[in-house]
Nucleic acid binder design. Structure first.
Lengths: 339, 339
DNA sequence: GTGAAAGCGCTAACAT
DNA sequence: ATGTTAGCGCTTTCAC
């Protein structure tokens, strides 16, 4: 372990100067800086993050809390955060809430309180009151992605507007008998996203003067298989079939497309299907969707936390409700209503 | 920030005793320990990880290096690591190599050298010589998952044996015209996994005295879409069609099943398909596969690194070649050769 | 612009 | 079993 003293000795300066030269804080003459840098490089010196953190109070480390690691959406957002943070020289400490409740408690009660991080990003987790309070007590910048939390600074996408956009697309294609696959309210974790998407759907329908039949709603669980089963129920019923389905997630929408295929229903000729998210598989299945750019959401969150960190100004929690971008991506799963 | 002195004062003991009582190292009488714990709890005291690390040399933090975050296999292994490590009170610092080469260099040259972690786990990354050397220079326990690296302690699954098992399953069902979807050698990152799986395939065929036609090999890129296209080529050719395909990954195998469906080829009646991995979508697609239990691989790696840490004994790199378990999971995509 | 020196909040000998 | 004390390797006043 080469330490700062060795660098100082080799460069012929004090440790204080080495610290200044290498960290960029404080004044160091150009030649001195160069000597220090050369010495550091030749010794292979890298500052000890623990010593630096203890002395300075800064860790150059951001904690990221995710509800699941093995689901596409979260790992994609995480990926965006990770690359943006690394680019700026920050480490990331990962807190996965995947497991049991006890472990989840300990993330807030212990892990986060060890002063290992300078800030926290929470990805799409519905935080309990106590959890939110714990987070606030850390007295650290916190950015939440994914749903309005009035007590935290939040980056949100407007789920209602996304759903309206998707539904409008179907309406514009002439569809009137539009079904919706969403989630039952019991399944309404994650900031009531299913509920908000359903609201958007109903608003768009109402605005167009089209009645939304309750019979044309099917709950599912946001998986491909769940979407598949919901679509089977929807399309297998006796009586008139919907001509289009607005599905509350791409994964469920893919399931719906597979169900249609199996029933011999052609997409988009006999049935249009639109999803939400921008899933990586969307292109393969030629799925029309409203993309919410999860990778960029992660990058934005990283930028936001660094901005708070660097401004030093621990601003009051502020929200940019519904400011995250989304976009209709028309592919082959939707088409005009055939006469 | 409540510090150790405040706890010591409230409990009426020295800071050393607080440290001992809370960390469990050293002797503390039961009543004293209790007083300290009560005091700590009432003050909401949590040790500062930076201070503790600097003083003790232990960080209770493991670095995990992943090649990608947004691919099912890696995020699943990571998930296994994360839960096992958290259970033991360890933090995890995530190093994603996703991005450009420069960033990758800096992980080995800078990030890992900041002494932020007690050990590192590298998931399925083919490490260059220099990278391996950097890792060794850290003088920390390192566990690599996924491929033999003679200079590091490695947890490996026997890819050749897995492929043989999969192929034998098809042979046992009576198939002889068996195709293989793998990857071209150029794509042979990750410890030559594609090559090793192909070898296993060829061995099993040879052992059964069945010739493996070169024409029945199609390279792809380990994605669903890649598997789809490879299967299209394989099944769309004039002349005799294979009756079974051994696909080198579940994602490609799913693509192959979709391609067969599209061509009106029934699975498993007209075509048997088997994959490798144990992908979460396998059940939905009724895919027969050889599961390698990635979640458990992660847990094992976590256990292994903690064992090295706690034994203190920095053992010489040792390998347990091919020791990770795998298992044939028969579902609906394979069947006996129809007469 | 640079150096001396006082910590940062703990842990681990070493005493007792 | 518990207290005293000397660091851990840096950063940051405060002088010059």
């Amino acid at each position: 372990m080469v330490s700062i003293d060795e660098v100082a000795r080799l460069a012929g300066v004090s440790t204080a100067t080495v610290s200044r030269a290498l960290s960029g804080r404080g004044q160091v003459s150009a030649p001195t800086r160069e000597r220090v840098e050369t010495a550091a490089k030749s010794l292979g010196y890298v500052v000890s993050s623990t010593a630096s953190s203890l002395a300075s109070g800064r860790t150059r480390n951001i904690g990221v809390i995710v509800p699941f690691l093995d689901r596409w959406f979260f790992s994609t957002v995480l990926s965006g955060i990770a690359s943006a943070l690394m680019r700026r020289g920050y480490d990331i400490t990962l807190y996965s809430l995947t497991a049991d409740g006890e472990q989840r408690r300990s993330v807030f009660a212990d892990f986060l309180r060890r002063r290992r991080v300078d800030g926290v990003v929470a990805i799409s987790i519905e935080l309990g009151d106590e959890e939110t309070e714990r987070l606030r007590e850390l007295d650290l910048p916190v950015i939440a992605i994914g749903g309005p939390n009035p007590r935290l600074t939040t980056l949100t996408v407007d789920d209602v507007a996304m759903a309206r956009l998707a539904t409008s697309h179907l309406l514009a294609l002439g569809h009137r008998d539009i079904a919706h696959i969403g989630a039952s309210p019991e399944f309404d974790i994650d900031f009531h996203i299913p509920t908000r998407r359903r609201q958007g759907f109903e608003q768009a329908m109402a605005d167009a003067g089209v009645p939304a039949h309750p019979a044309l709603f099917e709950p599912a669980d946001f998986t491909i298989e769940g979407g598949f089963r919901a679509a089977q129920r929807l399309l297998g019923r006796p009586g008139a079939r919907p001509t289009a389905i607005f599905v509350a997630s791409d994964e469920m929408a893919i399931g719906a497309i597979l169900a249609a295929r199996e029933l011999g229903i052609r997409v988009p000729d006999d049935l249009s299907v639109i999803g939400i998210d921008g899933h990586e598989l969307g292109e393969f299945f030629r799925l029309t969707t409203v993309d919410q750019f999860p990778l960029r959401q992660g990058e934005r969150a990283a930028d936001a936390i660094l901005a708070e960190l660097e401004s030093g100004a621990e601003a009051a929690p502020h929200h940019e409700p519904g400011r995250l971008p989304f976009e209709l991506i028309v592919r082959g799963s939707t088409g005009a209503l055939s006469a």
